[in-house]
């Protein structure tokens, strides 16, 4: 028996919004420690890794490890039927071929359940080693989203250059070129507005705007985003989900032929 409950549906809606543009389907691996999903996008260029800890749920029960392959488009249709302040419970029997989403209104007067067929997906888990990154940048998630959106107008790719002075995002194309420089902040009143750079070595890496923009769909989940970079390894874009877990996106850099 698997059962996981969240007291409002908003978080789950935001999580799904953060992954459904990159992935058509995904396998949710459930165990007593929580729920994990790892999947590459169709082009195998980026990887999504979602971790939701069991202690972050309002109720969590998982008697036996369970892998549930879900069509994320279908899941989105179902979650649309939930009000933001509904309690949502995800339920499945052991070895079941369906999963049930139950939504309960605040006053308990409306209870709805939606059963969805599960899919058998080929699982291709990548082993991601613990890596010490040359540069780790923490910045407001909204600012990162804004920069990715703005620079995508100029080029298909963006160059991220990180030094101890700051981080610079650049794009150039037919229209011209664009540069956005952010300096490390000191003494900001609010932690969520801070720009913090931890640098071992400076890095210059090029990434596809299209994917960065897809990652910023996670912006509503978190005030801050963390970018971890090293030469010639994938960038990690991490959004923390308060008290529940995190979503990490990995994007391979563009490399000269």
């Amino acid at each position: 028996m698997f059962e996981a409950r969240l007291n409002n549906a908003t978080t789950l809606k935001k999580i799904l919004d953060a992954i459904k543009d990159l992935l058509n389907e995904g396998t949710f691996d459930c165990s007593d420690s929580g729920i994990q999903l790892q999947a590459m996008d169709n082009s195998h260029v980026s990887l999504v890794s979602l971790t939701l800890r069991s202690d972050g749920f309002d109720k969590f029960r998982c008697d036996r490890n369970l892998s549930m392959g879900m069509n994320l488009g279908s899941m989105a249709k179902i979650l649309k039927c939930a009000n933001n302040d509904d309690t949502v419970t995800i339920k499945a029997q052991d070895n079941a071929d369906t999963v049930t989403f139950m939504f309960e209104s605040q006053n308990q007067e409306k209870v709805s359940d939606y059963e969805m067929k599960l899919m058998n997906l080929d699982q291709e888990h990548l082993g991601i080693p613990e890596t010490d990154y040359s540069c780790v940048v923490r910045m407001p998630a909204m600012e990162f989203a804004r920069i990715c959106r703005d620079l995508a107008q100029f080029s298909e790719s963006v160059v991220i250059c990180c030094t101890k002075e700051g981080v610079k995002f650049s794009a150039s194309g037919d229209v011209g070129s664009a540069n956005v420089k952010l300096a490390q902040t000191f003494n900001v009143d609010k932690e969520e507005e801070a720009i913090v750079i931890e640098m071992q070595e400076p890095v210059v890496l090029t990434f596809a705007c299209r994917y960065l923009n897809a990652f910023t769909k996670a912006t509503p989940l978190s005030n801050q985003v963390q970018l971890s970079m090293s030469a010639d390894v994938p960038l990690v874009v991490e959004y923390r989900i308060a008290e529940l877990g995190h979503i990490r996106y990995y994007l391979a850099p563009k490399i000269e032929d």
Binding site: V45, L126, P234, Y250, D257
Partner: peptide
């Protein structure tokens, strides 16, 4: 020219 490399190039399948 810049080419886009796939994830598997960096991380081994578990």
């Amino acid at each position: 020219f810049l080419s886009q490399t796939a994830m598997e190039t960096f991380y081994a399948t578990r």
